[in-house]
Design a protein around this nucleic acid. Sequence first.
DNA 1: CTGTTAGCGCATTCAA
DNA 2: TTGAATGCGCTAACAG
Lengths: 353, 353
Amino acid sequence: VASRRPPATDGRHPSAIRRRPTIQDLAREAGVSPSTASRAISGTGYAAAAVRQRVLDAAERIGYVPDANARSLRKRTSRSVGVLVSDLRNSFYADLAAGIEQELRAAGLLTIVVNDDGRVEDEVEGARTFIAMRVFGAIVTPVSAEAVATLLSAGVQVVQADRQFGDRWCDAVLVDNEAGAEQATRHLLGLGHRRIALLIDETVWTTGVGRLRGYRAALAAAGVPGDDELVAYTSFHAEAAQETARLLLERRPDVTAVFAANNVLAEGAFREVRRRGLRIPEDLSLVAFDDVPWMSMVSPAVTTVAQPALELGRTCARLLVDRLSGPVRPEPQTVRLQPSLLVRASTGRPAEG
Amino acid sequence: VASRRPPATDGRHPSAIRRRPTIQDLAREAGVSPSTASRAISGTGYAAAAVRQRVLDAAERIGYVPDANARSLRKRTSRSVGVLVSDLRNSFYADLAAGIEQELRAAGLLTIVVNDDGRVEDEVEGARTFIAMRVFGAIVTPVSAEAVATLLSAGVQVVQADRQFGDRWCDAVLVDNEAGAEQATRHLLGLGHRRIALLIDETVWTTGVGRLRGYRAALAAAGVPGDDELVAYTSFHAEAAQETARLLLERRPDVTAVFAANNVLAEGAFREVRRRGLRIPEDLSLVAFDDVPWMSMVSPAVTTVAQPALELGRTCARLLVDRLSGPVRPEPQTVRLQPSLLVRASTGRPAEG
DNA sequence: CTGTTAGCGCATTCAA
DNA sequence: TTGAATGCGCTAACAG
């Protein structure tokens, strides 16, 4: 396709190729002192317009690029932000990361991403690495309290995303899980459903706690007695969720609606419903939490509680930047974003009454 | 949920909280010289077992974490790798990034991710940033030749992922697009299709070139005359693709199969087919390139050319690590991964003959 | 407005 | 096997 000059590269270690120009080289080339060159390049401090231009030209000429490591060392803070997420391949986290990166880049910051796959050790290891990097701050979808605590005790500003450990440890941007789940459940109740199952994977994080609570609150408000057998616990895998859904539907064929507490569980539930040949929503209504692409591609499209994942990420980044560059704002703040119920075709009136 | 000790934080800038312990502090605490402390911590050079243990204990005690910036400055190379991708929200790139991060982390390297949204300026800007960071290397899904050339001329080792600019500039890990497209088209031909449309967004990158070529090669091999009107050019957006598909199907109602050259275009095509109320595959067969979650959730599930995105990322990282840590290997190498056709339910025999 | 000096935290000579 | 000295590349005081 393209075939321009094949740039110099000989397979040896980069640093062996040619010593990169330093600010000394730049100063010599421009005929000024290193500090003047520094001021001209960084834009801080005085520098005569003519001199500045001369330095900029010289930089262009010799290909000078300031060493970010040296700069960080000297200024005792870097332009990097550590981002610790649970699963980049899950579109919720991918969107979150994209939102963070977008906002950070706009603020001139770099995103260092670590995927912990939900493992506590990897999360803590990531936190340590961020500390070593002297990051500007960190944004974490916490798996445990440990990583966050480690970062905080090392003096790193942290923003917790989506989930929260501790109460007022640091800034946090969450989704109002309770309101979302309550809304979804209420929607089903409004359609006439009474035996609504909840498929959920955890109830220890703020996410699971909130969603379970919202589900229960809606039932209680409607005067529908809670039935513990309808709360099916599973693990964070589509296969496991499918199996759990299978057992649930076998055990309780009277269930008329299933509320899956996240996109992965919804996938399992959807597959199981398909496998059994049940019609949606005639035989069974399905509601999910978290809108991902497949939900609007299938037919009937899946009714779901959409989370503003991209905006969540953006907000985290903005909070971090504000806190670190703005005036002192000691109080950690918790921002709660509202999810919205997208009513699509997977929910309808139950067959009998 | 959790409620452990609220770590020390008062909203001021991290560095203001407490000076982080340096290797000097560590040395003092352990009762050795800084150089001995350094050797004990980094594990390079001599250090008596007892002394080393004493230093390690002291480090633990005072919470010493070596400064990665200082280390990079001194060693003139960092432990960070720059990763430049086009769209983190697209699951192909998300998987690619996840694969890269996974393998890099296993090698003790950090992933710095920049999302360029397919914009050349942002890509070049990202490349510059990587150079400033003195990255260990860079992995790029190139949008233009410029960013890659910039990196290479700064002496940064580059691995091009998915697409390639230049011929032997640097290592590259690609998917055999031609073989994949050829296979998909052959599959349709084998079912009896003769008027097969190709929905494609670009034919300037190696991806588009390969897919178009594979499509044509299969037709030629089957003795089916090429029909330029059946190649519908669109842009990289589901909406645009849907509109293009609409025009195509209106103009050429005789088309019996559509081959969408990537997952975004497939989404547009699928939506249009649904909108028109066409039955798949009875009225129209659909094949995609690149397997993403929705394709196996819809019914009929979409036949597609699956790309090993995660493995692609892993391979890029491995290549980079090998080149930078292994012995001299001057020849840039191009690895070509094989995609595989997943025959699902969206392809069948055409209605008439 | 510019140059000189010093030191960020670390790894690496070289001597002991 | 350890310690003292040096400098990676940069910016912030300070003096001119």
